[in-house]
Amino acid sequence: MIETQGVAKRYPHGVTALRGVDIEVSKGEFVFVTGPSGAGKTTLLRLLLRQELPDEGHIRIGGWDVGALPRSRVPELRRILGVVFQDFKLIRRKSALENVAYVLNVAGLPPAEQRRRAYEALRGVGLQHRLSTLPDALSGGEQQRVAIARALVSEPEILLADEPTGNLDPDLSVEIMRLFREINARGTTVVVATHDRDMIRRMQRRAIVLERGRVVTGGRPS
């Protein structure tokens, strides 16, 4: 489902965020990407989303060569991905419900259906009482849960989540992981970037470990 070969990414001012990264994630798998702060977890997800282009190597998602994808087809790629951003990236002038529904609007669903499913998704993360609240009026943890609902609402082929429980208390974290396991059981491939080792231990899934931009272990399914 996801495969990278010899991927390298350098940012301006000489920071090499990733080098020689080879990973493989099978369809339907649930994997963690972990490593210390600055190891390159977010950068890897940005490349998968075609938010950036790699300086070297190839990235394949589904049948697509992400790096060689023509610009006009980038939206198609992004529509099969559900993404929880580390900094949430909510639209500030839209309410929680509208933020979640926007993904379904993008997919061309009728407005009534958008609202119904967005409501269900928000209820799933325990925010049914915050539907019309603007992001700025939500706590960090609430914003994060809106971002999670938005990533799950379209039942994407692949879920990419960057520190999805970073602002949540332990009970909520467990609850979110349960949602991820559920969607994974329905067929979505799940990739979670985190430095929460306890969570990884509890979930007992493969962990791809990054360290200073290189894959230390777990790059391929065993």
Partner: peptide
């Protein structure tokens, strides 16, 4: 700028 970036990241086409 910011909201346009977000819209594109969740799969909106430039036309939308």
């Amino acid at each position: 700028r910011e909201e346009i970036d977000v819209m594109l990241l969740v799969g909106a086409s430039p036309a939308l």
